[in-house]
Design a protein around this nucleic acid. Sequence first.
DNA 1: GGTAAGATCAGC
DNA 2: CTGATCTTACCA
Length: 195
Amino acid sequence: MGRPVDRELLTRSSTMVAPWLLNKLLIRDDGRAIRIVEVEAYGGSEDDASHARNGPTARCGAMFGPAGHAYMYFTYGMHWCCNVVTGADGVGEAVLIRAGEPVSGLVEMQACRSRARREVDVTNGPAKLCEALSVDGSFDGVDLCVESSPLVLLDDGTPPPRTPACSGRIGITRSVEWPWRWFVADNPFVSNPPG
DNA sequence: GGTAAGATCAGC
DNA sequence: CTGATCTTACCA
């Protein structure tokens, strides 16, 4: 189906890596897989919207670890979201996976997302795709660049869009104007929040 | 020790 | 638009 992405390419800054991750695959060890169609970059100096803004903490420690590992965070009392850690070891950066398109294991994903009536609602949000893939806090720090992991970032040869769509990040109140969200233009699985 | 906000989602 | 649900950060 593909090969794990090259960790070296993930050591670049989150704003370089984020659009490059579009069209890559996120795959579970049971075959469930999605194609990434929407991402956001976090971290770097001066990003007041990043969990890393106050330095490493118990919660966001994985952001400061080596590139290519997962940073999972729990929010709103009930949702897990998945990030790909980027940048040099010791630098607090990551890319939030905001939406994906199912490519295999759709039936299993729908079973995990029983409240989703329409197919797009299975994976068109950061917490939705984690629920669809049964990914939670126990995946914090998992290495996404080795095939033996329960969750792997795969490159199946599909290149990122030549000209990805770009906008401000969603669901934050600080640095909202920064154009750090990228998505595959016209893909129906891109999240579509009010506003 | 208290409180408010939060990288969200679903139902009305 | 609002409730669910709970962890973290920040202030006293």
